[in-house]
Write a protein that binds this DNA or RNA. Structure first.
Lengths: 219, 219
DNA sequence: GTCAATTGTATCTAAAATGTATCAAAAGGG
DNA sequence: CCCTTTTGATACATTTTAGATACAATTGAC
C-alpha cells in the first residue's frame, strides 16, 4: 500500500486531495501544520509528501530541508500569488509543484509521475477485461496483447484512471498533449476512434457531447 | 444551501452583488459595516465572506484577522484607488480580491472558484429521484442515466437550484442564454417540453402563466 | 537516407443539439 | 362566453459538434 503524507493547513483542500488520492487506492495521512508533519516524519516513512508552502508554525521550505535527507519525494503545493521567482527557485528542491487552484486530474497525474519515477506506484491499471501496465507500456484484453501506440496507451490509461468521470477535451489536451486546446482540431477524436476500434470498448467509452469523453463502468 | 455574507457599506453595490449571487442560487446576507459583520459572524457560519476593505467603524483588515480563525474563505472587494502594494500584500491573507468597479461575471467566476476550491459548491444537485452532477455533466433518475443535452441539463440545474421559486422567462433567458428575452420566441417552452418528456417530472415542473416556470417540491 | 510506424491535419459527412415558424390548445379577463 | 394573451406541440431549418477518411508530416530504427 502506497502511503502519502498531506501537509496542508486548509482543511477543505486537504480533504479534497485525500479523497481523490484515496479513490486511487493510496493511503493518505493528513496533517495541518509543519510541527505535526515533522513529528510524524520522525517515526514514519511515506512514499510521497504533498507539502503546502504557506504553513503555520514551520515554513514549508524548512520542512523541505528536513525531509530531504529522509529521501522521500516531495510535491509542493503553492498558491498562484506566491509563485514568484524566489518560490520557483526553491521549489526546484522538490520533485514537482502544483499551483492552487489545481485540477484534480492534474494532481493525480503529477502524483502518479513522481511515484512512478520513484518506482513506487503500481504500474498496473485495469478496466473490465483490459489491463494496462504503464511501466512496461503494454495493454492486454483477456490476456491477449492489444497493439496500442504510446499515445493511445496514455489516453486509455488516463480514461481508466478516471472511470465514471467526464474528462473534458481541454483537460485531456492539457494532460496528454501538454498544450492548450485550440478548438478546431480532430486529433483527440481520431485517437478515441482508434482506441474504440482496437479495444472494443464499445458503449463504455462514451462521448459526452459538448464536453469530452467518459469511460463508464456501468455500461 | 450555500450561505454568503456580504460586508459592503455602499448599498447599491451590495444589492447588485446580492441580486446576482441570489440568481445563482446562493443565499446572501447583507451587512453594511464591520460591527454588524462581527456580530453576525459570532453566531453564524458562512461558506464565503465578501468583504469591502473601506468600511465604517471596523477596518476590513481587522475584520479579516477576526474571520481567519473561523476558517471561512474571504474575497476582498477593493476600490481601484486603494489597490497599492500595501493592500496587495495584505489581501494575500484572503482567498482572492476583486477590484471595484467589477464585472458581474468576474464576481461570479471568482466566487465559484473559491467555493469549488473549498469544496462547498457541491457539484451535486438533487430533486426527488433526480440527481445532477454539474461537474461531470450527468443526470440520473433513480440511478438510471438521463440522456440530457447540455442546455437541458443547465436548465434543469437552474430549476433545481430554485425549487419552489418561480423563475421568470426573462431571468431564465438571461441566465441560460445570456441574452435579453425578446418575447416572441418559443425556445424556452420547447426546452421545458423536452425536459418534461425526458425527466418525467410531470406536475412538479409547473407553468406559471404570464410569468415563467417553477419546480415544485410538494407536487 | 529509406522505410515503416506513429501522429497529426484537412476535409467531408453524419449526427446531435438548438432554434424558428406555425398553428392548436389552454388560461385569464372582461 | 368570447376574445385576447400565453403556452404547448409539431415539423422542420440551422448550427454546432463529433466521426470517418485520406493523406501529410514526423519520428525512429536500421
Amino acid at each position: 500500500m502506497i502511503k502519502i503524507l498531506i501537509v496542508e493547513d486548509e482543511k477543505p483542500i486537504s480533504d479534497l486531495i485525500a479523497l481523490n488520492l484515496g479513490a486511487q487506492g493510496y493511503s493518505c495521512t493528513q496533517v495541518y501544520d509543519g510541527m505535526e508533519a515533522a513529528n510524524l516524519l520522525e517515526n514514519n516513512t511515506y512514499d510521497l509528501v504533498l507539502l503546502d508552502i504557506m504553513l503555520p508554525n514551520v515554513d514549508g521550505y524548512e520542512l523541505l530541508e528536513y525531509i530531504k535527507p529522509l529521501n522521500m519525494p516531495v510535491i509542493f503545493i503553492t498558491a498562484k500569488a506566491a509563485l514568484d521567482d524566489r518560490v520557483k527557485g526553491l521549489t526546484l528542491g522538490a520533485e514537482d509543484y502544483i499551483v492552487k487552484p489545481f485540477q484534480v486530474v492534474e494532481l493525480l497525474a503529477r502524483v502518479g509521475v513522481v511515484l512512478r519515477r520513484y518506482n513506487k506506484a503500481s504500474s498496473e491499471l485495469s478496466f473490465k477485461n483490459i489491463k494496462i501496465n504503464t511501466e512496461a507500456k503494454t495493454a492486454t484484453r483477456d490476456g491477449v496483447p492489444l497493439d496500442l501506440t504510446p499515445k493511445e496507451l496514455e489516453l486509455l490509461a488516463l480514461l481508466i484512471r478516471n472511470v465514471n468521470i467526464t474528462l473534458f477535451r481541454e483537460n485531456i489536451y492539457e494532460t496528454i498533449w501538454d498544450s492548450e486546446y485550440s478548438g478546431d482540431t480532430r486529433t483527440l477524436d481520431l485517437h478515441i476512434q482508434r482506441l474504440r476500434k482496437k479495444t472494443g470498448l464499445g458503449k463504455c467509452l462514451k462521448t459526452v457531447y459538448g464536453a469530452g469523453y467518459r469511460l463508464e463502468d456501468s455500461q
